[in-house]
Design a protein around this nucleic acid. Structure first.
Length: 728
DNA sequence: TTTTCCCGCCAAAAC
DNA sequence: GTTTTGGCGGGAAAA
């Protein structure tokens, strides 16, 4: 529904007050965005939905900082829901009076407020009659209050790539008020964003918004650090253990021979040394640091998929906490918090991995893979960028790790070789790469890892990988082409409903990218499903390249093109970076393309954000490819091919991706997918087809340790292929 | 049932 | 002292 509303007009004019929305929102929608309406409605109803405690309120009140920039208002419009709405909200936020009033209202009946808000949002006061309705609507479901959704709203307020000239400051109080949540929640978001340098603390209660400009650098550094830490090995080790049946016991890990040694080292780094960490001050456990480490795991992982339990174990180890189970649980809780924010940033998406034992929650990296840049920079950056880590980890790491690194050196080399070419079509690309990359690793680990990845890849993931890897070579490799993808045309998305949204976004992106010079990477965020779309609409900001879709559906495609070639996980080295150099930095991101899936979308609308994670589509698409809708999915063998794609409604675009292997194997490719590259460059990749959808994946059974299963919901439709495997 | 994760207590930092 | 930050884990909604 929402989607519908959004459509064109929205796209066209972001600002409009979407009348339509309101309605929809009311209905299902509220889930996602309450605010929008609220803003409008604000006067009527109490604004906040959020429950506020009196106690807390006090916080707001007095100060409220003057500080905060009103200006935000301008930019901020962006609520996901509606830009306009956002503005209003902001405005209201800006004006203390208003805020106060609202708060008070809220105070009075915190909970209710929410409800009210919803209702309002619905727009209806109308409703009055329906108290019942209100209930429904109002009752802000848990999802509506989710951190991921909140984060999206937060992100919507700021441009992904702010002009260097303008400085945007973020007043925590203001944001908390405008978003209707407690400040505590804002800290959760900001801490994660800070870990990626999207924001930085300026002063008490104030953060500066940097946007994604430096994200590539940050990621590069994190990747480097992760390599140094040998996280990949650790993960492999843990996985292996699992395989073995050994459960995680934190302490255990060591027992195994090789792994042990490695791990040990790791451990060493991690904690022992770093005095800097100040010993464990609170900060050591900081969400910020956890977030960085978590991201490192993805960047280092060949499969780009990290299961929560593995991540938790690794993080715990580092912290050297005792292995209690309680700690594990706590860690996992925190990881969910972080994951929700990262999901909102379209850096990861939720997937499920099937192991022998069963399904495990996991997240897959869908952010940029290759951050091209020179090594040197990396280094520097790291220092600057990630001071925290550096101190802690990095320092330790370096010392401890050097040895390891030595080994790792292979990474770099490897990558280069890898890059060599993997043509899209060619092989099973993804797997290969990885393996190759792994070369450096010990056999054991490497093999495990390989397996692991493969499985994953197969499933859904492969796509992503493939895309990266595969694609790159061909397209990305070319220096020239760095952008291939970039060229995103609005067309990409043609999807009926969806596209509008996307298109908008795209355009923005494009524009953006253009400006920046984007390049190589493209991030495309697609919304896979309609849902995404829906959510998107609101989100779309004119300025903002990213749209956030609540659902996982979004993905960013990056340059797989570029990256692909580059890198492998392990290394950064990108020679290639040079190719796209400039671009990278700046724009790196932005180019986005989006794709949509046509089919689902319409119906999906309902899903709203909630799903973010799960969607299969997503999975499927993972990397580049989009799966078509689940349901049909599969079939389709016929891909649409490319050529048309443009014309075709977008459905899926995938960027290059493809999973060659999968496709081949399965043959199934999905119809819809296109290679993005084409879009960008028609000729380049052609592989179009692809799409295997996730499912096909299975083809290789052997591998799998894990399979990625799409989220149930979606999945169902599609092929089930997945699971089966386990095994290993 | 398990997974996910909201909520807010409360203490460590920062004023 | 007060306020800001943010660790932490109970417990409930969602799956």
């Amino acid at each position: 529904m929402e989607v519908n509303c959004l459509t064109l007009k929205d796209l066209i004019s972001p600002r409009q007050p979407r009348l339509d929305f309101a309605v929809e929102d009311g209905e299902n929608a509220q889930k996602e965005n309450i605010f929008v309406d609220r803003s409008r409605m604000a006067p009527k109803t109490p604004i906040k939905n959020e429950p506020i405690d009196l106690s807390k309120q006090k916080k707001f009140t007095p100060e409220r900082n003057p500080i905060t920039p009103v200006k935000l208002v301008d930019r901020q419009q962006a609520e996901p829901w509606t830009p306009t709405a956002n503005l209003k909200m902001l405005i209201s936020a800006a004006s203390p009076d208003i805020r106060d009033r609202e708060k008070k209202k809220g105070l009075f009946r915190p909970i209710e407020n929410k409800d009210d808000a919803f209702t309002d949002s619905l727009q209806l006061d109308v409703v009055g009659d329906s108290a019942v309705d209100e209930f429904e609507k109002q009752r802000p479901s848990r999802k509506q209050k989710s951190l991921g959704l909140l984060c999206q709203k937060f992100l919507a307020r700021y441009p992904s790539y702010p002009l260097s000239t303008e400085k945007t400051t973020i007043s925590l109080d203001e944001v908390a008020v405008s978003l209707g949540v407690e400040r505590r929640r804002i800290y959760d978001i900001v801490n994660v964003l800070e870990s990626l340098h999207l924001v930085s603390r300026v002063a008490k209660n104030q953060y500066g918004w940097h946007g994604r400009h430096s994200l590539p650098k940050t990621l590069r550094n994190l990747q480097r650090l992760g390599e140094e830490q040998k996280y990949e090995e650790q993960m492999a080790y843990l996985q292996q253990k699992e395989l073995d049946l050994i459960d995680y016991k934190f302490g255990e890990r060591k027992k195994d021979g090789d792994p042990d040694s490695q791990e040990q080292q790791l451990l060493d780094f991690s904690e022992p040394d770093c005095p800097s960490s100040s010993a464990n001050s609170r900060k050591d456990k900081s969400l910020r640091i956890m977030s960085q480490k978590f991201v490192m795991l993805f960047l280092v992982s060949k499969t780009k998929i990290v299961t929560l339990d593995v991540a938790a174990k690794i993080l715990i180890e580092e912290s050297q906490d005792a292995p209690d189970h309680s700690k594990f649980k706590t860690k996992v809780r925190r990881l969910y918090d972080i994951a929700n924010v990262l999901t909102s940033l379209a850096l990861i998406k939720k997937v499920h991995v099937t192991e022998e034992r069963g399904r495990k929650p996991a997240f897959k990296w869908i952010g940029p893979v290759d951050f091209s840049s020179s090594d040197e920079e990396l280094v520097d950056v790291s220092a600057s960028v990630l001071p925290e880590l550096k101190r802690e980890t990095y320092g330790q790491i370096q010392v401890c790790a050097k040895q390891k690194l030595a080994r790792h050196g292979s990474f770099n080399t490897v990558q280069a070789s890898e890059r060599i070419q993997r043509k899209v079509n060619s092989e099973p690309s993804s797997p290969y790469r990885e393996e190759q990359g792994s070369g450096g690793y010990s056999l054991e680990i490497g093999s495990l890892a390989a397996v692991y990845r493969q499985k994953i890849e197969d499933n859904s993931q492969g796509k992503a990988f493939a895309s990266k890897r595969v694609v790159p070579p061909s397209s990305s490799l070319d220096p020239v082409a760095p952008f291939p993808v970039l060229s995103v045309d609005p067309e990409y998305c043609v999807n009926p409903l969806a596209h509008p949204v996307f298109s908008v976004a795209q355009t923005d992106l494009q524009a953006f990218s253009m400006q920046n010079g984007l390049n190589g990477q493209v991030d495309v965020s697609l919304a896979s499903a309609a849902s995404a779309v829906e959510s998107l609409k609101p989100a779309l900001l004119a300025g903002q390249p990213l749209v956030y879709v609540p659902s996982a559906s979004l993905f960013m495609l990056y340059g797989s093109l570029q990256e692909g070639p580059a890198s492998g996980s392990g290394s950064e080295r990108d020679d290639r970076s040079s190719e796209a150099p400039a671009t990278v930095e700046l724009s790196s991101a932005p180019s986005a393309q989006k794709r949509l899936c046509e089919e689902r979308k319409p119906q999906e609308e309902d899903e709203p954000a909630t799903k973010r994670q799960s969607r299969e589509y997503e999975d499927g698409p993972l990397s580049l490819v989009m799966p078509k809708k689940p349901s049909d999915s599969t079939d389709l063998a016929s891909p649409k091919t490319m050529g048309n794609r443009a014309s075709i409604p977008l459905k899926d675009i995938h960027v290059n991706g493809q999973l060659p292997a999968a496709e081949e194997i399965s043959g199934k490719a999905t119809a819809n997918c296109f290679v993005s590259s084409e879009w960008g460059n028609p000729s380049r990749n052609t592989d179009v087809e692809k799409p295997s959808k996730e499912n096909e994946s299975t083809k290789e059974p052997s591998l799998l340790q894990y399979l990625c299963v799409q989220s149930p919901a979606v999945t169902s439709s599609s092929d089930p292929q997945e699971h089966p495997t386990h095994t290993s």
